[in-house]
Amino acid sequence: MAIFVMQRRLHASDGKSVREKGRFIINAEGLVKHYGSIKAVDGISIKIRKGEVYSLLGPNGAGKTTTVEMLEGLRKPDHGRINVLGLDPFADADVLHRREGIIPQGFNFIEKITAKEAIGYYATLFGVKNRAKELLELTNLTDVADVNFMDLSGGQKQKVGLCLALSNDPEILFLDEPTVGLDPQARRNIQDVIRRLKSEKRTIILTTHYLEEAEELADRVAIINHGKIMAEGTPQEIIREYGDGMKLSVSAAPVLAKAFDGRKGMSARYDSGRVIVALESDAKISKAIRIIENSGQEWSNLKLNNETLEDVFLSLVGKKEKE
Protein backbone atom coordinates (compact mmCIF):
# COMPACT_ATOMS: atom_id res chain seq x y z
CA MET A 1 0.00 0.00 0.00
CA ALA A 2 1.37 3.30 -1.04
CA ILE A 3 2.12 5.94 1.47
CA PHE A 4 0.11 8.99 0.68
CA VAL A 5 0.71 12.32 2.23
CA MET A 6 -1.42 15.15 0.98
CA GLN A 7 0.34 18.43 1.34
CA ARG A 8 -2.01 21.00 2.63
CA ARG A 9 -1.29 24.43 1.35
CA LEU A 10 -1.31 27.07 4.01
CA HIS A 11 -4.15 29.43 3.36
CA ALA A 12 -4.37 32.86 4.84
CA SER A 13 -7.70 31.78 6.26
CA ASP A 14 -6.32 28.71 8.03
CA GLY A 15 -6.54 30.46 11.38
CA LYS A 16 -10.27 30.76 10.89
CA SER A 17 -10.75 27.14 9.96
CA VAL A 18 -11.27 26.06 13.55
CA ARG A 19 -14.07 28.53 13.98
CA GLU A 20 -15.48 27.57 10.59
CA LYS A 21 -15.52 23.90 11.47
CA GLY A 22 -19.04 22.69 11.25
CA ARG A 23 -20.09 25.69 9.21
CA PHE A 24 -21.78 25.07 5.91
CA ILE A 25 -19.40 25.69 3.02
CA ILE A 26 -21.88 24.51 0.40
CA ASN A 27 -25.30 26.01 0.61
CA ALA A 28 -27.86 25.41 -2.11
CA GLU A 29 -31.47 26.44 -1.92
CA GLY A 30 -34.46 25.60 -4.06
CA LEU A 31 -32.57 24.31 -7.08
CA VAL A 32 -34.64 23.67 -10.18
CA LYS A 33 -33.31 22.53 -13.53
CA HIS A 34 -35.18 21.64 -16.71
CA TYR A 35 -33.92 19.96 -19.85
CA GLY A 36 -36.54 21.01 -22.33
CA SER A 37 -39.75 19.67 -20.86
CA ILE A 38 -38.00 17.28 -18.44
CA LYS A 39 -37.77 18.60 -14.91
CA ALA A 40 -34.53 16.97 -13.83
CA VAL A 41 -34.20 18.76 -10.50
CA ASP A 42 -37.33 19.91 -8.70
CA GLY A 43 -36.57 22.10 -5.70
CA ILE A 44 -33.53 20.58 -4.05
CA SER A 45 -31.85 22.29 -1.08
CA ILE A 46 -28.55 21.01 0.26
CA LYS A 47 -26.21 22.21 3.01
CA ILE A 48 -22.82 20.60 3.42
CA ARG A 49 -20.34 21.21 6.20
CA LYS A 50 -16.61 21.53 5.86
CA GLY A 51 -14.92 18.15 6.19
CA GLU A 52 -18.15 16.26 5.68
CA VAL A 53 -18.67 13.31 3.34
CA TYR A 54 -22.10 13.86 1.82
CA SER A 55 -23.54 11.18 -0.39
CA LEU A 56 -26.26 11.52 -3.01
CA LEU A 57 -28.24 8.34 -3.64
CA GLY A 58 -31.05 7.69 -6.02
CA PRO A 59 -32.17 5.61 -8.98
CA ASN A 60 -31.04 6.31 -12.55
CA GLY A 61 -32.33 9.62 -13.80
CA ALA A 62 -33.17 10.86 -10.31
CA GLY A 63 -31.30 14.11 -10.88
CA LYS A 64 -28.11 13.45 -8.89
CA THR A 65 -25.66 14.35 -11.64
CA THR A 66 -27.64 17.44 -12.58
CA THR A 67 -27.63 18.58 -8.95
CA VAL A 68 -23.92 17.95 -8.56
CA GLU A 69 -23.14 19.70 -11.86
CA MET A 70 -24.95 22.78 -10.63
CA LEU A 71 -22.89 22.71 -7.42
CA GLU A 72 -19.74 22.35 -9.55
CA GLY A 73 -20.66 25.34 -11.68
CA LEU A 74 -20.96 23.24 -14.83
CA ARG A 75 -24.64 24.03 -15.20
CA LYS A 76 -26.65 27.08 -14.33
CA PRO A 77 -29.78 26.37 -12.31
CA ASP A 78 -33.09 27.64 -13.70
CA HIS A 79 -34.11 28.66 -10.18
CA GLY A 80 -32.48 28.66 -6.81
CA ARG A 81 -29.33 29.96 -5.23
CA ILE A 82 -25.98 28.27 -4.61
CA ASN A 83 -23.12 29.40 -2.48
CA VAL A 84 -19.86 27.44 -2.40
CA LEU A 85 -17.03 28.76 -0.21
CA GLY A 86 -18.80 32.10 -0.32
CA LEU A 87 -18.87 32.21 -4.12
CA ASP A 88 -21.32 31.57 -6.93
CA PRO A 89 -20.21 28.33 -8.61
CA PHE A 90 -21.34 29.33 -12.09
CA ALA A 91 -20.06 32.90 -12.12
CA ASP A 92 -16.89 32.21 -10.15
CA ALA A 93 -16.14 28.81 -11.68
CA ASP A 94 -12.54 29.74 -12.49
CA VAL A 95 -11.74 30.62 -8.88
CA LEU A 96 -13.59 27.67 -7.39
CA HIS A 97 -12.21 25.07 -9.76
CA ARG A 98 -8.75 25.79 -8.40
CA ARG A 99 -9.97 24.69 -4.98
CA GLU A 100 -12.13 21.79 -6.15
CA GLY A 101 -11.43 18.34 -7.49
CA ILE A 102 -14.09 16.91 -9.78
CA ILE A 103 -14.71 13.51 -11.33
CA PRO A 104 -17.69 14.07 -13.59
CA GLN A 105 -19.96 11.20 -14.47
CA GLY A 106 -18.59 9.40 -17.53
CA PHE A 107 -15.12 10.84 -17.06
CA ASN A 108 -13.20 10.90 -20.33
CA PHE A 109 -9.89 12.25 -21.50
CA ILE A 110 -7.85 12.90 -24.65
CA GLU A 111 -7.42 9.55 -26.43
CA LYS A 112 -3.72 9.26 -26.95
CA ILE A 113 -2.40 10.86 -23.80
CA THR A 114 -1.07 8.70 -20.97
CA ALA A 115 -2.10 8.91 -17.33
CA LYS A 116 1.31 10.28 -16.41
CA GLU A 117 1.17 12.96 -19.12
CA ALA A 118 -2.36 13.92 -18.13
CA ILE A 119 -1.36 14.46 -14.49
CA GLY A 120 1.67 16.50 -15.58
CA TYR A 121 -0.56 18.59 -17.85
CA TYR A 122 -2.94 19.32 -14.97
CA ALA A 123 -0.06 20.14 -12.63
CA THR A 124 1.24 22.73 -15.10
CA LEU A 125 -2.19 24.24 -15.68
CA PHE A 126 -2.90 24.49 -11.95
CA GLY A 127 0.63 25.66 -11.28
CA VAL A 128 1.24 22.97 -8.66
CA LYS A 129 3.96 20.39 -8.13
CA ASN A 130 3.68 17.38 -10.42
CA ARG A 131 2.78 14.51 -8.10
CA ALA A 132 2.26 11.95 -10.88
CA LYS A 133 4.32 9.25 -9.20
CA GLU A 134 2.56 9.58 -5.87
CA LEU A 135 -0.94 9.73 -7.36
CA LEU A 136 -0.33 6.80 -9.70
CA GLU A 137 0.91 4.72 -6.78
CA LEU A 138 -2.04 5.76 -4.69
CA THR A 139 -4.48 4.48 -7.30
CA ASN A 140 -2.38 1.44 -8.30
CA LEU A 141 -1.89 2.78 -11.82
CA THR A 142 1.91 2.71 -11.84
CA ASP A 143 2.03 -0.27 -14.23
CA VAL A 144 -0.11 1.49 -16.82
CA ALA A 145 1.32 4.98 -16.31
CA ASP A 146 2.55 5.09 -19.92
CA VAL A 147 -0.47 3.56 -21.65
CA ASN A 148 -2.63 5.84 -23.79
CA PHE A 149 -5.91 6.74 -22.11
CA MET A 150 -7.98 5.06 -24.85
CA ASP A 151 -6.24 1.75 -24.23
CA LEU A 152 -6.96 1.65 -20.49
CA SER A 153 -9.74 -0.49 -19.00
CA GLY A 154 -12.90 1.22 -17.80
CA GLY A 155 -11.85 1.01 -14.16
CA GLN A 156 -8.36 2.29 -14.90
CA LYS A 157 -9.84 5.26 -16.76
CA GLN A 158 -11.98 6.03 -13.73
CA LYS A 159 -8.86 6.00 -11.56
CA VAL A 160 -7.12 8.44 -13.91
CA GLY A 161 -10.12 10.68 -13.24
CA LEU A 162 -9.43 10.42 -9.52
CA CYS A 163 -5.75 11.27 -10.05
CA LEU A 164 -6.70 14.37 -12.04
CA ALA A 165 -9.29 15.40 -9.46
CA LEU A 166 -6.63 15.17 -6.76
CA SER A 167 -3.85 16.82 -8.72
CA ASN A 168 -4.61 20.35 -7.44
CA ASP A 169 -4.82 19.32 -3.76
CA PRO A 170 -8.52 20.30 -3.57
CA GLU A 171 -10.50 21.35 -0.49
CA ILE A 172 -13.75 20.06 -1.95
CA LEU A 173 -14.14 16.91 -4.00
CA PHE A 174 -17.11 16.10 -6.20
CA LEU A 175 -17.04 12.41 -7.07
CA ASP A 176 -19.88 11.34 -9.35
CA GLU A 177 -19.93 7.54 -9.31
CA PRO A 178 -16.16 7.19 -8.82
CA THR A 179 -16.35 3.45 -8.23
CA VAL A 180 -18.64 2.54 -11.11
CA GLY A 181 -17.31 -0.37 -13.15
CA LEU A 182 -14.49 -1.13 -10.73
CA ASP A 183 -13.68 -4.62 -9.54
CA PRO A 184 -14.21 -5.19 -5.79
CA GLN A 185 -10.55 -4.75 -4.96
CA ALA A 186 -10.22 -1.55 -6.96
CA ARG A 187 -13.39 -0.29 -5.31
CA ARG A 188 -11.83 -0.95 -1.90
CA ASN A 189 -8.77 0.92 -3.09
CA ILE A 190 -10.82 3.99 -4.03
CA GLN A 191 -12.81 3.77 -0.81
CA ASP A 192 -9.55 3.77 1.15
CA VAL A 193 -8.49 6.88 -0.72
CA ILE A 194 -11.81 8.55 0.08
CA ARG A 195 -11.40 7.65 3.77
CA ARG A 196 -7.94 9.16 3.75
CA LEU A 197 -9.20 12.31 2.05
CA LYS A 198 -11.88 12.50 4.70
CA SER A 199 -9.30 12.17 7.47
CA GLU A 200 -7.54 15.14 5.88
CA LYS A 201 -10.70 17.18 6.48
CA ARG A 202 -11.57 17.55 2.85
CA THR A 203 -15.21 17.98 1.99
CA ILE A 204 -16.48 15.23 -0.29
CA ILE A 205 -19.68 15.00 -2.28
CA LEU A 206 -20.07 11.41 -3.36
CA THR A 207 -22.65 10.08 -5.78
CA THR A 208 -22.95 6.34 -5.83
CA HIS A 209 -25.22 3.40 -6.54
CA TYR A 210 -23.45 1.21 -4.00
CA LEU A 211 -25.47 1.78 -0.86
CA GLU A 212 -23.12 -0.06 1.46
CA GLU A 213 -20.42 2.29 0.19
CA ALA A 214 -22.47 5.31 1.18
CA GLU A 215 -23.45 3.74 4.50
CA GLU A 216 -19.81 3.11 5.27
CA LEU A 217 -18.23 6.35 4.03
CA ALA A 218 -20.84 9.07 4.30
CA ASP A 219 -21.51 11.29 7.28
CA ARG A 220 -24.83 12.21 5.76
CA VAL A 221 -26.75 10.94 2.77
CA ALA A 222 -29.59 12.31 0.69
CA ILE A 223 -31.90 9.96 -1.15
CA ILE A 224 -33.12 11.63 -4.31
CA ASN A 225 -35.93 10.55 -6.60
CA HIS A 226 -37.64 12.43 -9.41
CA GLY A 227 -35.57 15.52 -8.72
CA LYS A 228 -36.58 15.77 -5.07
CA ILE A 229 -34.90 14.81 -1.81
CA MET A 230 -36.91 11.97 -0.24
CA ALA A 231 -34.82 11.60 2.89
CA GLU A 232 -31.75 13.19 4.36
CA GLY A 233 -29.59 12.54 7.40
CA THR A 234 -26.95 10.19 8.74
CA PRO A 235 -27.43 6.62 7.49
CA GLN A 236 -28.55 5.61 11.01
CA GLU A 237 -31.09 8.41 11.19
CA ILE A 238 -32.54 7.41 7.89
CA ILE A 239 -32.73 3.74 8.76
CA ARG A 240 -34.39 4.59 12.08
CA GLU A 241 -36.86 7.00 10.56
CA TYR A 242 -37.84 5.24 7.37
CA GLY A 243 -36.95 1.62 8.03
CA ASP A 244 -39.32 -0.84 9.54
CA GLY A 245 -37.04 -2.32 12.15
CA MET A 246 -35.63 -5.79 12.55
CA LYS A 247 -35.47 -8.48 9.87
CA LEU A 248 -35.30 -12.20 10.31
CA SER A 249 -34.57 -14.48 7.42
CA VAL A 250 -34.17 -18.20 6.76
CA SER A 251 -33.39 -20.34 3.76
CA ALA A 252 -36.68 -22.05 3.02
CA ALA A 253 -39.37 -22.71 0.42
CA PRO A 254 -41.66 -19.81 -0.57
CA VAL A 255 -44.60 -21.48 1.09
CA LEU A 256 -43.16 -20.67 4.53
CA ALA A 257 -44.04 -17.00 3.94
CA LYS A 258 -47.72 -18.02 4.02
CA ALA A 259 -47.36 -19.04 7.65
CA PHE A 260 -47.02 -15.34 8.49
CA ASP A 261 -50.22 -14.30 6.75
CA GLY A 262 -52.41 -12.31 9.07
CA ARG A 263 -49.89 -12.19 11.93
CA LYS A 264 -49.77 -8.89 13.75
CA GLY A 265 -46.52 -6.84 13.50
CA MET A 266 -44.95 -9.25 11.05
CA SER A 267 -44.87 -9.54 7.30
CA ALA A 268 -42.99 -12.05 5.22
CA ARG A 269 -41.87 -12.22 1.63
CA TYR A 270 -39.84 -14.64 -0.43
CA ASP A 271 -36.72 -13.47 -2.25
CA SER A 272 -34.15 -15.63 -4.02
CA GLY A 273 -34.18 -18.71 -1.82
CA ARG A 274 -34.90 -16.96 1.45
CA VAL A 275 -38.01 -16.04 3.36
CA ILE A 276 -37.58 -12.62 4.90
CA VAL A 277 -39.73 -11.57 7.82
CA ALA A 278 -39.95 -7.91 8.74
CA LEU A 279 -40.55 -7.47 12.45
CA GLU A 280 -42.22 -4.47 14.01
CA SER A 281 -40.03 -4.69 17.10
CA ASP A 282 -37.48 -6.87 18.82
CA ALA A 283 -40.25 -8.34 20.95
CA LYS A 284 -41.51 -10.28 17.94
CA ILE A 285 -38.28 -12.24 17.43
CA SER A 286 -39.11 -15.27 19.56
CA LYS A 287 -42.66 -15.35 18.22
CA ALA A 288 -41.39 -15.42 14.65
CA ILE A 289 -38.98 -18.26 15.36
CA ARG A 290 -41.82 -20.24 16.90
CA ILE A 291 -44.00 -19.75 13.83
CA ILE A 292 -41.18 -21.02 11.62
CA GLU A 293 -40.62 -24.08 13.84
CA ASN A 294 -44.34 -24.86 13.93
CA SER A 295 -44.79 -24.52 10.17
CA GLY A 296 -43.36 -27.99 9.56
CA GLN A 297 -41.24 -26.64 6.70
CA GLU A 298 -37.58 -27.42 6.14
CA TRP A 299 -35.43 -24.41 7.03
CA SER A 300 -31.83 -23.54 7.73
CA ASN A 301 -29.36 -20.70 8.02
CA LEU A 302 -31.37 -18.33 10.19
CA LYS A 303 -30.19 -14.71 10.19
CA LEU A 304 -31.27 -11.76 12.19
CA ASN A 305 -30.39 -8.28 11.09
CA ASN A 306 -31.26 -4.69 11.27
CA GLU A 307 -32.36 -3.08 8.05
CA THR A 308 -29.62 -1.68 5.93
CA LEU A 309 -29.62 1.60 4.05
CA GLU A 310 -30.28 -0.45 0.96
CA ASP A 311 -33.51 -1.82 2.39
CA VAL A 312 -34.69 1.66 3.26
CA PHE A 313 -33.58 2.97 -0.11
CA LEU A 314 -35.52 0.30 -1.96
CA SER A 315 -38.65 0.84 0.06
CA LEU A 316 -38.43 4.64 -0.22
CA VAL A 317 -37.81 4.65 -3.95
CA GLY A 318 -40.24 1.80 -4.54
CA LYS A 319 -42.98 3.53 -2.54
CA LYS A 320 -42.73 6.59 -4.71
CA GLU A 321 -42.91 4.41 -7.80
CA LYS A 322 -46.26 2.92 -6.72
CA GLU A 323 -47.95 6.24 -5.97
Binding site: E72, L74, A93, D94, H97, R98, E100, I102, P104, G106, F107, N108, F109, I110, Y122, L125, F126, G127, L164
Partner: peptide, 13 residues
Amino acid sequence: KEKIFRQLSLTPL
Protein backbone atom coordinates in the same frame (compact mmCIF):
# COMPACT_ATOMS: atom_id res chain seq x y z
CA LYS B 1 -19.18 14.92 -27.70
CA GLU B 2 -16.45 13.11 -25.79
CA LYS B 3 -16.76 15.58 -22.90
CA ILE B 4 -13.13 16.70 -23.20
CA PHE B 5 -14.18 20.34 -23.11
CA ARG B 6 -16.08 19.72 -19.89
CA GLN B 7 -12.89 18.22 -18.49
CA LEU B 8 -10.75 21.15 -19.65
CA SER B 9 -13.24 23.64 -18.23
CA LEU B 10 -12.40 22.24 -14.78
CA THR B 11 -8.81 23.48 -15.13
CA PRO B 12 -7.44 27.02 -15.29
CA LEU B 13 -6.83 26.61 -19.04
